[in-house]
Simulated scan of single mutants.
Amino acid sequence: MCDESIHQQSIHQQLPPVLLDLADAGPRDRDNSGVLRRLTDHSRKLPGVEATAVISVDEHNKNACTVAAASDHTSGQLAQAQLELNEGPGLEALRTGRRLADLPLDGPSFRSRWPRFVPRSLSEGFTGITVIPLRHEHRTIAALHLHHQHCGHHALPGESVRAAQAMSDAAVIGVAHLRQQRYVDQLQSALTSRIAIEQAKGMLAERFEWTIDQAFELLRSYARSHNTRLHDLVRSILDGPPTEGPFRRTSPR
């Protein structure tokens, strides 16, 4: 059996649990960086790949990018160099959304295409690079970099490129799940806060024979004048005894 067939068999055996690991984002991942770190770790093990990194787009500022993960210091520095130089294959993949596979960086066309980035990559011993964009909802949210050698046509095995693409797609599912979970958590928090406010309004209206609107206005005014979060004020009213706090009952009822 030739080496390529061995590599293909090995990748096919190892890929399913890797895809599940990337797609199954959960409590261990507070943000996208956890998923992207695992993506760099898994893709680094693909045949022909020597180092990996991910540049991601800021979720709240689409014009800002950051190095989200890297398999080692060198790949992280090369990713950061692209951001500082404002050029390189990762930024191009983020801009176009197209995969750049097995590029021979020592070729003249790429030296002129990225005249400042290419010398840095070559100085670190990486003559080839593959960049896979991660796309979610028609937007490119990150770019996976596979650093490797390019000693002839298709130096990086095609199975490695396809496996990295599958891993990237799975990572997108993980990132999307995290974003959805954050949205659900925000809605739940807003709903819980709203319920607490309504309870506090009703409690104060009953305690002082105010209207509901009067109770809410006094809550809001007190929070503003005392530089206190409305949520914290409400919790102190609900959790504390009626004879204590800013709106304590002055006579027993």
Rank of each mutant, 00 (worst) to 15 (best):
H231I: 15
Q8Y: 04
L22E: 00
F126R: 12
M1G: 13
A64Y: 11
Y222W: 12
S193R: 10
A163Q: 01
A155C: 10
V18A: 13
P16F: 06
G90S: 08
E92I: 10
R253Y: 09
A69N: 06
A25V: 05
M203V: 07
S33W: 07
L39Q: 00
T52Y: 00
I173S: 05
E124G: 10
L19H: 14
D106N: 08
T40W: 06
A223S: 10
R229I: 07
G26R: 01
R182L: 00
D185A: 07
L191S: 08
L78N: 03
S56A: 15
Q186N: 04
A53I: 04
S251C: 11
I212F: 02
E206N: 10
E4I: 09
R249Q: 10
L238T: 03
R249L: 05
A70L: 02
I197R: 10
E209M: 02
H60W: 09
P108L: 06
P133A: 14
A190T: 06
S75A: 15
L191Y: 11
V57T: 10
E50P: 08
D185H: 06
S168D: 04
L233Q: 05
L46G: 00
I197V: 09
E84C: 14
L100Q: 04
D239Q: 09
S10K: 14
H136G: 04
R113N: 11
